[in-house]
Design a protein around this nucleic acid. Structure first.
Ligand SMILES: [Mn+2]
Ligand SMILES: [Mn+2]
Ligand SMILES: [Zn+2]
Ligand SMILES: [Zn+2]
Lengths: 145, 145
DNA sequence: TATATTTATGAGACTCAATCTCACAATAAA
DNA sequence: TTTATTGTGAGATTGAGTCTCATAAATATA
């Protein structure tokens, strides 16, 4: 998806929520989408400030909620009390291997697990909305140290 | 496992950590293990207080860390910023379906997923230490309302 | 364009789970 | 016991996240 199209889509989401188009909101979208990392709000806050963009922490937190609601971003909770966000624009679903030594996050996708997961939900008559599958351990780099 | 044996095992863990046997520590173990729920520290704190047992929040938090380290308990993070703990004594591994409407937690185990998970780790040369597989959605009770 | 109306922004106050502090209490080795 | 060591607990502190509200900016209207 090209950058202009993305902005249009975000503008549509804002319109649907009766929210105004502001430079801060677009800057936050741009910062997250142009990155392939799992970003913390504080990290995005400082990244924009360092680019000379006026923004507050509150605006970053508020905008992240919109990005998640409209599927531009996914929130990642790895149990350390800090929310991380990754772009969903042009990115397909995946789950995560998380290194407990260095914090590295490796992505994986397994279609068999995904479908087994769905059949578990069917068995329990449970409607799945989302899921997280996180494997914690030691990555190859950290093992060889 | 009988209650006396459990106390013995916990006492061994305490000895291994050079920690003393205190009434508070045993009370916290007992409170968690005799429950089949996913308990918050604050909840355990009040449960003990209501039983007339003198304990502080700090002691509950500190003791939970020991219980987790020695495999008497598992910590559960469902992304709401509150840690929950469940007994592992006599309980086999399982993962969770979590209802976003009512907060109910349903347990599941799928051996195929467990083994696929292990093969993913092999492929990435990643040493798994633990994993969490959480499926969020709407439970049967909440659907029929 | 000018003006009115509505909504957003941001600095800092606030919340709340969790952790830390430290004076005092309890434990256990000898 | 005695004594050294560790634990306890009330309250202070931390830190991610949320809230407040005066001001600024965006958009609707004339
Ligand atoms: Mn998945
Ligand atoms: Mn599992
Ligand atoms: Zn690593
Ligand atoms: Zn429910």
């Amino acid at each position: 998806m090209d950058k202009e199209q993305l902005k249009e889509n975000f503008a549509s989401a804002l319109k649907q929520e009766n929210l105004k188009r502001t430079p801060q909101r677009f800057a936050i979208l741009e910062e997250l989408v142009s990155s392939d990392e799992h970003r913390e709000c504080t990290d995005i806050y400082f990244a924009l400030r360092n680019q000379g963009i006026s923004v507050s922490r509150a605006t970053v937190y508020r905008t992240m909620d919109i990005l998640v609601k409209y599927d531009f971003a996914r929130r990642l909770d790895i149990g350390d009390g800090i929310a991380r966000y990754e772009s969903k624009v042009g990115i397909s679903h995946h789950d995560h291997l998380i290194c407990l030594e260095c914090g590295k996050i490796i992505e994986f996708l397994n279609r068999d697990i995904e479908s087994l997961q769905q059949s578990i939900c069917n068995d329990f008559d449970f409607d799945m909305i989302r899921h997280t599958h996180q494997i914690f351990g030691v990555c190859p780099d950290c093992k060889s140290k």
